[in-house]
Design a binder for these strands. Structure first.
Lengths: 156, 156
DNA sequence: CCATATTACTTGTGAAATGCAAGTCAAAAT
DNA sequence: ATTTTGACTTGCATTTCACAAGTAATATGG
């Protein structure tokens, strides 16, 4: 159950502060990256990332992101244990933020994944459009499958 | 003194992870915002922000940002107690990141400072160019004053 | 049908980060 | 000389984090 405090009063009205209060920690943006570019949807998949997030932190962050309307989830009709997470439109619109952070780090630090970086550099608008479309497609698919609610195969 | 561990091994080579390890906390980006748009340069000035950062956290964050080459500092020739902080080119190039975070929050949350937001929306490139120029001007001025090293006025 | 796996989490616990108040210290100001 | 100011430290209680282990609800294999 994702019951979570609705809004614990901002420290200020500054929009940057609002962003930082939602996303300013060591994990939230990495989770969003995993959904956006690595196509992660389940708890298990997030755990497989290189940064090795702990399970309790992952559960906490997924809950917060959902509470902030950045991601949402539906249980998987073909496997009742699985919860499929996906980005909401609000979450998808974080793509420019992530992109600028990637480009900044790539320009000033020694980092990997240069293939992705080059894609962003060559045509940023195209890259953003593709990411957006892919994310929308994924969320549509998850929503559609959940809606059709396949009657569980009864064994025997 | 600002002796600080050089680089304590990244959790992964991902450029987003690099950004998050440098900037992913509740304060670093707000400090950079204060330098970029509020023109803060001294410890005291940072403390006056709406978000009310604690002095020990501020000292710690200024030290980290300096260790990461995002900001730098010079002691003020006209007042030996003061240290003037300024953004390095690397720090100035965070402007697009901050801008996208502000625009995202402004689009999805109820936030203040709509005047600034409108400036960003109307002509993002122009806004970024102005911010960049202003920051360069400030760092030049601080560096120049420190270089000239005015012989302290001897009283008597 | 039943034992074993999987998935998505909790719980427990020690370590680290945070927040607040108070204190330090050198350089102005009075 | 004394007080004030600016930039930090230090102490300490609280919160958050990371790692290991455990749990509950499916799912799978025999």
């Amino acid at each position: 159950m994702g019951k979570r405090r609705a809004k614990s009063r901002r420290r200020s009205g500054c929009p940057l502060n609002a962003s930082v209060e939602m996303l300013g920690d060591r994990w939230s943006l990495l989770i969003i990256r995993d959904m956006m570019v690595r196509g992660c949807r389940t708890f298990k998949e997030f755990l497989r990332s290189d940064e090795r997030i702990a399970t309790n932190i992952l559960a906490d962050r997924l809950g917060r992101l959902e509470a902030h309307g950045i991601i949402s989830s539906r249980s998987d009709p073909s496997d009742g244990r699985k919860l499929n997470y996906f980005l909401t439109p609000k979450g998808i619109e974080l793509a420019p933020v992530l992109t600028e952070m990637v480009l900044w780090a790539a320009a000033h630090e020694d980092t990997g994944n240069q293939a992705l970086v080059r894609l962003m550099q060559e045509d940023k608008a195209k890259f953003l459009a593709e990411v957006k479309q892919r994310c929308l497609q994924i969320s549509d698919e998850i929503a559609a499958r959940a809606r059709s609610e396949q009657p569980r195969r009864i064994k025997g």
